[in-house]
Nucleic acid binder design. Structure first.
Lengths: 236, 236
DNA sequence: CGCACGTTACGGTCAGCGCCGAAGTATGGG
DNA sequence: CCCATACTTCGGCGCTGACCGTAACGTGCG
């Protein structure tokens, strides 16, 4: 199959409303069952199963069987990044700010959510802003950078920087990270390995918690205190 | 329209083989007419016109009229980045290297081409490698960085760094740039504002030249000498 | 061993859309 | 002024594919 045909197939698979809903539901990086995804897309489980099969054989998704459950997840990080970039275009094309709060669920998503493997929403932007203000992070739309003081700062918070050291460039030992434009805040926040490390550490240490079956994130009192006192982050 | 519906519409628009061909033809950043795009996609002009209309009203493309010609181009850089990320997934899903040279045109594309606004193919990777070897650039899959010596180096080559200074972060004045994974070389090269600046400068100074109606790039003798002697780039 | 749940397979219906031929509209040149 | 060119609009054909019934299959639990 030519590259062009593959391109079209991938985009077409992402272009069906039902499949798009399921893909977005998988954007939090977790693995979900066909029934859960069917509910998310508003279709019957049989139909969802067919969609999932097609996306799996195409290589967009991967499945792992656990007992009588089959868990589906995004196959690779680059798939997540692709979905993110499509959402980015969709956000730019959306009406210039409908500003009517669509509901409590939507409000929770705007406040804090995961963007595949890192924080987004107001939380993600606030953390990035705080790190920039403290001089620990530099961020442009092209790229981001964790400074030397930033490495120390995160280390003091118990964050394991070792896995990220491997991503340092050889010469200067700087930690580079990917910027990610938020669709609700329309502001840059931290993605890539650095963003993922912060998100993982926050979840592991009880600073934040995943909410039920959504991408929304709950900030625990402990987390709120740390974000406020250590980061100086404005969390609304 | 909800974000989800917009997402699906955008992906679906990119998912038709004919439209996908046209979008990829526009990936060199230039503006093309409906007839040219029809030829690229292998369809009749009237069919192409319909497709172009839909993509324009959706906001993926923009048109500008010049006499009896209507030039179509990608509406925003984020659209180009979206297409790039889809190609990225397609490249990962493609068979592990069909290695049969598909033809001279394809060979030219592999050697040197534009990727919206910067160089890709063997040329793009070789330039990035050279700058990294000289210690002027640091590059990871998450982000890239032009070092202080890199700023001097490019300045000595007559490259106008002023527009890029605006993209420097305020604190350290470092120039950050976007990494871009090549679909033919499967290696990182320079994108973002820095990659665009290098590409523009090369074209303006006769180091490279665009080939007819394709994305392929021709390296002039002058350019080959500069790339070899100043960059130390292996252009095979 | 059955029952319940989740997933897969099949058949039929229907809407949507890609495509082209033919005709219509603007632009610029002879 | 008329014609050639570039592009668009319209109408109709044909096909793909999304969806849901119903039903079969497999797994794990009681």
């Amino acid at each position: 199959m030519s590259t062009n045909a593959l391109f079209a197939e991938i985009a077409a698979l992402s272009g069906d409303p039902a499949r798009a809903s399921m893909l977005q539901a998988l954007m939090d990086g977790r693995a979900l069952t066909a029934t859960e995804l069917a509910k998310a897309a508003g279709i019957t489980p049989q139909t969802a199963s067919g969609h999932l099969n097609r996306m799996t054989t195409a290589g967009l998704l991967s499945v792992e069987q656990q007992g009588r459950h089959r868990y589906h997840r995004l196959a690779t990080p680059s798939v997540a990044q692709m979905l993110e970039s499509i959402m980015q275009v969709a956000a730019e094309l959306a009406p210039p700010r409908p500003r009517l709060t669509v509901g409590p669920r939507d409000a929770a998503l705007r406040r804090a959510r995961t963007c595949y493997d890192h924080f987004a929403g107001h939380l993600g932007v606030a953390l990035a802003d705080a790190l920039i203000r403290l001089g620990h992070v530099e961020l442009t739309s092209d790229a981001g950078l964790l400074t030397e003081t930033g490495v120390t700062f995160l280390g003091a918070l118990g964050m394991d920087v070792e896995p990220m050291l491997a991503r340092r460039t050889k010469r200067s030992g700087r930690v580079l990270c990917r910027p990610c434009l938020d669709w609700s805040e329309r502001r840059l926040h931290l993605g890539g390995a650095l963003g993922a490390a912060i998100c993982t550490h926050s979840l592991d240490n009880g600073w934040t918690r995943r909410l039920d079956g959504t991408r929304a994130i709950h900030i625990t009192p402990k987390g709120a205190r740390i974000f406020r006192e250590r980061f100086g982050a404005m969390l609304g």
